[in-house]
Design a binder for these strands. Structure first.
Lengths: 143, 143
DNA sequence: CTTGCTGCAAACAGTTTGCAGAACT
DNA sequence: AGTTCTGCAAACTGTTTGCAGCAAG
């Protein structure tokens, strides 16, 4: 599945006339090996630890490309950092964000997705994407 | 209703031992007179036009107070500015955000709210607040 | 009179950009 | 060879903070 994602990005890159570079490969590998919701800074540190030569700006630029290619999605929480999560084709998950321990629990609910489509339809709105975040306390922190 | 909100803020201020100042009154008045989703910068410009002496830092600080008092809510869209919206007790609305013209359409859907409660229950999660944003093109921009 | 609040400017954090050299095709 | 990409550092943007003076209680 990681291989598929790499192929997907390569097609995107080819279609846009982008070059295949060592840095992009490395950053893609590391991004794909991470868990969800990594911040640019976190990813940059990971990248730097195995590849000290790679600059922060490249990581920023590359993540933007990933987002553009549909491989990743930018998410904004309330900590002042842009985070990126993996996009899994045909699947969309939303987040329960614990304000106690910052844990993020993912969930998916088809009914909610369908209701959103109804709402959009009612407003003549064409949906590109959406984001649902529920803030509160997880089972551990609520005690 | 504006008066009620002022009273609510004054109780909050009193409870926290905050002082009542000319600046906070002015900023509160202007905030309450605005429409939804105003950015700090926008509000600051409004404030400055009628009260040139008031500084930007005060506006930032005061809006944070409003959020803390439950009168306003911070929202993050993808334009790099923190915005504040009015909190209406017992009501919660979500947003359709047009990426074409930046229009924001509000909606409310009780079914979605209830589904969220179900999901939270299933995960042992205690909900404090939530945020649902649907991105796409509004009826004008999709043409 | 005491303490909190304000305005200013400087500091800050995250992100973007200009540019010269390196790397891909 | 011709372009795109990279790394660096500087620039930028939105926001926060330190501090001296001002104002509320």
């Amino acid at each position: 599945m990681i291989l598929e994602k790499k192929k997907a990005f390569n097609s995107f890159a080819a279609a846009k006339g982008l070059r295949s570079t060592r840095q992009r490969d490395i950053i893609l590998d590391i991004f794909l090996s991470t868990h969800q919701h990594i911040s640019v800074e976190e990813l940059y540190l990971k990248v730097k630890s195995s590849n000290p030569g790679i600059g922060q700006a490249t990581v920023y630029r590359t993540l933007k490309l990933f987002a553009e290619s549909g491989l990743a999605r930018e998410i904004l929480l309330h900590d002042g950092q842009t985070r990126y999560e993996h996009v899994v084709a045909g699947e969309h998950h939303d987040h329960l964000v614990c304000t106690g321990c910052n844990a993020i629990i993912e969930f998916e609910d088809e009914t909610i997705e369908n209701l959103q489509k109804d709402i959009a339809l009612r407003h003549g709105f064409f949906i590109r994407s959406h984001k649902l975040e529920i803030y509160g306390l997880c089972s551990t922190c609520r005690i």
